[in-house]
Amino acid sequence: MRQTALLSRRTAKEILRDPLTLFFGLGFPLILLALLTAIQANIPEKLFVLDQLAPGISVFGLSFLSLFSALLLSKDRGSALLLRLYTTPLRPVHYILSYMLPLLPMALLQSLVCYGFALILGLPWSWNLLLCLAVTIPVSWIFIALGLLFGSLLNEKQVGGVCGALLTNLTGWLSGIWFDVNLVGGAFLTAAKLLPFYHGVALARAAYAGTLTEHLDHLWVVLAWGAALTAAAMWAFLRQMRKN
């Protein structure tokens, strides 16, 4: 437990001391929120209404967690820091938890800042916002597991491409944040519903609307993806550990 805490603190420091983390993790979602709200104020159609937009961007912001943790892990592998740690009496569970646990409070902080800013922009206050923070936990689990998975499989450069470009775009386009995926239909809709991002956004929106109990099917999909991705990430981490 003590060793996990030590390594977790180190993970948190490494991530939080990177200025890019602060920009992409906190600043970028807020810029998007402000920009789309400004656009909404100047168009007659209801495209970017805050009660739909804020939960969506909150989930979108979580996709950067994958980038941060995958980058850290791939750098650790590249720099031989992990090799050094593998010769200490630490066990695999210490490493896996230390790359996952510190990301959870960061996810909560990210959502808190996102909803806080949305309130400033005009999102009506509701106690349901506490539910929105609560659903951040299962939704962030998906992105945290993806970070461990990609960090175990890819090198630093590949992580930049896969997590920095591909994953954030997949999360953005296939989650229904910017438009209703039902309007597109076909294979796009099928892909969106197969992947967890759409369900994460739907869950966050239902939490704000106070209709969470009617949309628990989204929660089950999110939890199933979280469990499957964690299993895959653990397999990938142990595999690279054995290869070292």
Partner: peptide
């Protein structure tokens, strides 16, 4: 593993931690 330590060829330090934090991290792990 309790008897040995390894200093690998590549730099094996936590880059965003201070020198003090790196040393204390390794001591704590042990």
């Amino acid at each position: 593993k309790r008897l040995i330590a390894v200093s690998p060829q590549e730099t094996a330090v936590a880059p965003k931690l201070t020198v003090r934090e790196n040393l204390e991290l390794m001591a704590g792990i042990h």
